[in-house]
């Protein structure tokens, strides 16, 4: 326990070969991680925030020993993930969103027992802990149901029991609330937070593309995009970094055709960043100004462009604003761009 770092990576790169037929000049490889340096302290609930395809799952897989890095080193709980695979495996667990593992003909109880035994839990210990976890997750009524009969939410709760029942030192949660309804997602988040409070020496790495989830749960987080870690700090500090600026949401009449570079909204004095999105017949602007007094200039600009103000809201910066600041895009736009690139 002398090492204060539960997770440590140095310059981790991962390159995938692109399979399938290619036209001439098309790339044959894709860089999924591009020199990732990460340090997660023991006892931290650390978040990796990024759009789909940013490299979150690749990083988790490398840390969970499922994938080798192309170069660089990674250590989990003091052990090298490439050299000391068996030691790492004994100390970790992983739960992914939308997981369908298990055998359809087994009951929830049997399936959990089987996996607990795979992790070396003694028979009685496994059964007692499974029963206790079922109670905590509100699954005790369904323990004798076949796993193929569970709803998505209950199946994910079962996966959570599988992940935590083995008393891991480091837990990897890869998009754990993917596809869950509000209540199930809340239950899952509540459990994770409680578990971390009860076990201050354990570490949890969470990947998500839900801003609010990252904001609510994580002690610290890193924003990852196109395989690179862009910033890393506590959610509060990240948001505070924007507080010298003023953040507004504007809803305006459609702006029409894009003007030349010099006439762009970004060129208006005092405008730090702007993100434009057309939504339901109007335009939404996420506007970051160096100071509030730049606002009249912006409104005058809109009038010149033939638009008009529908609604205006000043708000506290969110992680979304942080994301826009470091990537130049909104999270959903980043996801779309990744999708288009694939």
């Amino acid at each position: 326990m002398s090492n204060p770092l539960a997770i440590e990576t140095q310059d981790v790169r991962r390159i995938y070969k692109i399979r399938g037929p290619k036209t001439k000049g098309e790339p044959t490889t894709r860089v999924a991680l591009d020199g990732v340096d990460l340090q997660v302290k023991r006892g931290e609930l650390f978040g990796l925030l990024g759009p789909n395809g940013a490299g979150k799952t690749t990083l988790i897989k490398i840390l969970a020993t499922l994938l080798l890095p192309s170069s660089g080193t990674a250590r989990v709980d003091g052990f090298d993930v490439v050299r000391d695979t068996e030691e790492v495996k004994r100390r970790i667990s992983m739960v992914s969103g939308g997981e369908t593992s298990g055998y359809g003909l087994l009951t929830v109880e049997e399936s959990l027992w089987m996996f607990a035994r795979f992790y070396g839990l003694e028979n009685k210990v496994a059964k007692d802990r499974i029963a206790a976890m079922a109670q905590i997750m509100g699954l005790e009524e369904r323990m004798r149901a076949k796993i193929s009969d569970l709803s998505t939410g209950l199946r994910q709760k079962m996966n959570f029991i599988r992940g935590f029942v083995t008393d891991p030192n480091v837990v990897f949660l890869d998009e754990p609330t993917l596809g869950l309804d509000v209540q199930a997602a809340r239950d899952v988040r509540g459990f994770v937070r409680q578990w971390m409070d009860d076990h201050p020496d354990r570490t949890l790495l969470l990947t998500t593309h839900y801003m609010a989830e990252a904001d609510e749960m994580c002690d610290r987080l890193a924003i990852i995009d196109s395989g690179k870690l862009l910033v890393c700090d506590t959610p509060a500090n990240l948001k505070r970094s924007l507080q010298t600026e003023a953040v507004f949401n504007l809803k305006v009449a459609p702006l029409g055709a894009k003007p030349k570079d010099g006439d762009l909204l970004e060129a208006v004095p005092g405008v730090s960043r702007v993100n434009v999105a057309d939504v339901n017949g109007h335009t939404e602007l996420a506007l970051t100004l160096r100071a509030e007094d730049a606002l009249p200039e912006v409104l005058a600009y809109l009038t010149r462009r033939g638009s008009s103000l529908i609604a205006l809201e000043k708000r506290e910066p969110t992680l979304e604003d942080v994301f826009i600041k470091v990537t130049g895009r909104r999270l959903d736009q980043a996801a779309d761009a990744e999708k288009a690139a694939e």
Partner: peptide
């Protein structure tokens, strides 16, 4: 619930005991 909330570490099987436990756990389904 206290079993889970407890900070006491769970004892785990190693070596042959783990091997044997896994054989039967997989035969079970």
């Amino acid at each position: 619930k206290d079993i889970i909330r407890s900070q006491e570490r769970v004892k785990k099987l190693h070596g042959f005991a783990l091997f044997w436990a896994v054989v039967w756990a997989r035969a079970y389904p």
